[in-house]
Structures are given as C-alpha cells and as structure tokens.
Amino acid sequence: MEWVNAVVQGTLLGGLYALFAAGLSLIFGVMRLVNIAHGDLIVLAAYLALSTAAGLGLHPLAALTVVVPAMAAAGYALQRGLINRTMGGDILPPLLVTFGLSVIIQNGLLMGYTADPQKLQAGTLETASLSALGLTVGVLPLLTFALAVAVIGALQWMFYRTALGRAFRATSDRQDVAQLMGLNRAHVFGLAMALSLAVTALAGVLLGIRTAFDPAGGGARLIFGFEAVIIGGLGNLWGTLAGGVILGVAQAVGGQIHPGFQILAGHLVFLAVLAVRPRGLFPKMEG
C-alpha cells in the first residue's frame, strides 16, 4: 500500500512539475529560447503572492488575480525590452542574459525578503485531505494536478485551435515568412513570454502553498521543469505532463526507498530516459 501511495503522491506532484515545465516548453517551442531564469521567476511569483496576500489580506489563491496578470505583463516587458534585443543569430547571448536575470532575481529577492524561508498561508487548504480505497490524498495536490491538466489542455487548445496559436507555430517555423504575414516577431515573442510567465505565476503560488521557499530555490525548480520537458519530449505539451508525472513518481518512489534518495531517483530516471530516448518519450511528430 505504501508503494501505491507513493505512486499516487508522485503523480500528483508531477502536476506541479508539469506547471514548472509548461512555460519553459512554450517559450522554447516558440522562440528556441532556453530561459535559465525560469525557476527564479517561479520563486519570484511566490514572493509576489506573499506580498499581495499580506498587503491586501487575500488568500494566496485569490492573490492569483493579481500575480498572474502582473507576471504576464512583466514577461511581455522583459521580452520586448531586454531579451528580444539579444535574439537572432547566436543562441548564446539570450542564454547569458537569462542567466544574468537569474542572478539578479535571486539577489533582489535576498535584499527584499532576506534568506529566511517563507510560506504562503492557505489555511485549511494546506491540510485538507480526501480518503478513498485506503488512500489519503491532500486536496492541494489534487487541485494542483487538476490545474496542471487544465492549463496544459488550454495551452494545447490555444496552440492548435486559435489564431494566436497559429501565429506562435508559424513564427516558430519560419520567422521571416511569419513577418510577411504581418506578424511582428517582437510582439509574438512578447506574448509567448507573457503566457509563459502567467503559467509560471500559477506554478509559483501552488509551490508556495505546498512548501517553504527561499530566494535560492529557483535552480531546483528550473531543473525539475527541464527534466519534465525533456522526458516528455520537446514540443509536446501532453508529453510534458507525462514527463512531470514520471519525474514526480520517480522521486516519490525513490523517497519511499530511502528519504535521501528522493531527488537523486528523479535525476537517475531522467538520465535513463535521455540515454535510451534522447528525444524524450513522446517527441513531436514531424509533418
């Protein structure tokens, strides 16, 4: 039963990892940008929720109404004002800029909030649980997983069923020809980053309710997000969800074997997948 429980908990945790990964996957898909600051932006969103919840006396989930639009707007501005200027040609400059951004965010948070771990206070949501078939699962992990499925489904729909999604895919395919369709690449990239950081905001708030966070915590979230994307296969959003679940289950089962083995087990499964299927388990079908 412990093992079944570990798999269930790991699956639900995978939802959170999928949310870490979705924004990363989105911007890589649209503009081939690897955002090293992604994890720090998740943590930044958690801090933003902390201040919003404290300042306005809101529940952290209600703070999403502020944090999501704020992160989206910041993403658009960041892309147009900074990252776009480094794009085109070499992949190294944007990589270095996001690395620099990562350092700036970490140090900014350190100055603003100190290194003390913080947590978002969500009242009964933190402890509420449901029991069935001899298993007990927390409401928060369930909610997180449901939101992950909803977000991935919505992104998938947006990508393949809407004009915005067409613009993203066309720009991803051929940037110069996309311009000929009247698409301003700088704006399209801005929208992609806005969307990515909107998802990141949700991920950050759910993370902050689930566990304590501190300014240095971005790196681990970036790695988990990366691993989920790579395990699932680049360019496949449902694959990213699967990748998150595989990573979550690997960690939970690893933790069941030995508590110290939890994180390592995740990395080992990631490496195993990479060794056997370098393009991930569900790579995008090329047309």
Binding site: R166, A167, A170, D173, A178, G287
Partner: peptide, 12 residues
Amino acid sequence: FPSLSIEENLLI
C-alpha cells in the same frame, strides 16, 4: 509553414 495545415497556412 510546415507545422500548419494547408488551411491554416491560408488562414494565417
């Protein structure tokens, strides 16, 4: 655009 269908290419 290779990842868009023919109709999507027209629509864009």
